[in-house]
Simulated scan of single mutants.
Amino acid sequence: MQIVTVSIKTEDIKDKIIWFLKHLENEGVEILSQEDVNDLKLLIATRAEKSIPFSE
Rank of each mutant, 00 (worst) to 15 (best):
M1N: 03
M1C: 01
M1E: 01
M1Q: 02
Q2F: 01
Q2I: 08
Q2E: 05
Q2K: 09
Q2G: 03
Q2T: 09
I3L: 04
V4F: 02
V4K: 07
V4L: 04
T5S: 00
T5Q: 02
T5A: 01
T5M: 00
V6S: 06
V6M: 13
S7L: 12
S7F: 03
S7M: 10
S7I: 13
S7D: 11
I8M: 05
I8W: 01
K9E: 08
K9T: 08
K9P: 00
T10C: 05
T10G: 01
T10S: 07
T10Q: 06
E11W: 06
D12K: 12
D12V: 14
D12Q: 10
I13D: 00
K14L: 12
K14T: 04
K14Y: 10
D15V: 14
D15R: 15
D15K: 15
D15H: 12
K16P: 01
K16I: 15
K16Y: 13
K16M: 13
K16S: 07
K16Q: 11
I18C: 02
I18S: 00
W19A: 10
W19Q: 10
W19T: 14
F20P: 00
F20N: 04
F20D: 06
L21N: 08
K22Q: 09
H23Y: 07
H23M: 10
H23W: 11
L24H: 06
L24S: 06
E25M: 15
E25K: 14
E25R: 15
N26V: 13
E27L: 06
E27G: 02
G28C: 11
G28A: 08
V29L: 12
V29K: 11
V29H: 05
E30H: 07
E30N: 07
E30W: 09
I31M: 01
I31G: 00
I31K: 03
I31L: 04
I31V: 06
L32H: 03
L32M: 06
L32Y: 04
S33T: 08
S33G: 03
Q34H: 04
Q34W: 08
E35F: 02
E35R: 04
E35I: 13
V37K: 09
V37L: 11
N38D: 11
N38L: 14
D39P: 01
D39H: 15
D39V: 15
L40H: 12
K41F: 09
K41E: 07
K41I: 14
K41V: 12
L42P: 02
L42Q: 11
L42R: 13
L42M: 13
L42H: 12
L42G: 07
L43R: 14
L43Y: 13
L43D: 09
I44G: 02
I44W: 10
I44A: 04
A45T: 15
A45Y: 14
A45R: 13
T46Y: 05
T46E: 03
R47K: 11
R47M: 07
R47S: 06
A48N: 11
A48L: 10
A48M: 11
A48Q: 08
A48I: 15
K50Y: 00
S51D: 05
I52N: 02
I52T: 03
P53I: 00
P53Y: 05
F54Q: 06
F54I: 14
F54H: 05
F54K: 08
S55E: 11
E56L: 14
E56V: 15
E56S: 09
